[in-house]
Design a binder for these strands. Structure first.
Lengths: 150, 150
DNA sequence: TTTGATGCAAAGGATTTGCATGAAT
DNA sequence: ATTCATGCAAATCCTTTGCATCAAA
């Protein structure tokens, strides 16, 4: 049942249905984003995009990321620095949270069903029904912990 | 062992130790903040402060909230709107997370030791040692759920 | 008096937007 | 030909800062 849909075609369909036009810069940005597999800021994306075409503007990246967000392919995240980072949307089934090293910035994704279950339970006990949540654990990763004591 | 320290005197001591001076506006802002018991933005605080003295500037509120944060009395929070909200710091022992109604904006604080325990466990399994975390559950509160179906 | 606090307005950083121009349909 | 997308710069929003002035100490 879980047919892996090509993000590119999903994007193409979305644009068709909304009367949007394709463009070279849009393709580059989408390509870079789909390939990058990270949690990139607009400026980080822009840097990579400009390696392909130096004339792409920042505004276009912002606009493209909004488009990718609107069609459900990208998800904006706000961690503890003022910048929005985008990650590939994995779909609701594949929700996950983040573990962030405050020393090196490394970001690890994780899911824990036991935590998710408890979250619903806690919310229920306050009369809430949860639609979504945000959980970030900040700490020191193994690598940094090692180089620390050295 | 848990002697409840008056925030005002804590603030006074902090200022003394750091060679800072008292001021009328600082007192008003601290008063408003300690009384307000909420998760207020700078502008919300400013509004309330100006009911006491209309001439207080926004910059002063920003500066005062930084001071209160520095001396451990206030805690800045960033939820899913671009504005920083300040809440009374409860101290590390009394850490808590948030339940936020996406309809009416109501914010409920909660703690769940089972979740906290699992968080450490998950982090450990990835080699991380957690220093702090952020968890927000978004959903619909009981009141909004009722007025919904009506 | 000396030093820190204030108010104002200017400056910052991140993101958005208006507009003339360029490209896709 | 239309209509949307782009690039640029100006505009926003939130927050911080420089500076002359005011008020604690």
């Amino acid at each position: 049942m879980t047919s892996t849909i090509d993000p590119h075609s999903l994007l193409r369909d979305y644009m068709a249905q909304h009367g949007l036009k394709a463009s070279r810069q849009r393709e580059i940005i989408a390509d870079v984003f789909f390939t990058a597999q990270g949690h990139l800021t607009v400026d980080e994306l822009l840097q990579r995009v400009r390696k392909v075409d130096a004339r792409v503007s920042q505004a276009t990246v912002y606009r493209a990321m909004r488009l990718l967000t609107d069609c459900g392919l990208a998800e904006p995240r706000n961690f503890s620095d003022g910048q929005t980072r985008y990650e590939l949307a994995h779909g609701h089934e594949d929700h996950h949270d983040h573990l962030i090293c405050t020393r090196c910035g490394q970001i690890v994704e994780f899911v824990d069903d036991r935590i998710e279950a408890l979250q619903s339970k806690v919310a229920q006990s306050h009369g809430f029904s949860v639609t979504h949540h945000k959980m970030e654990l900040y700490g020191i990763c193994a690598t940094c912990a090692k180089s620390d004591g050295a």
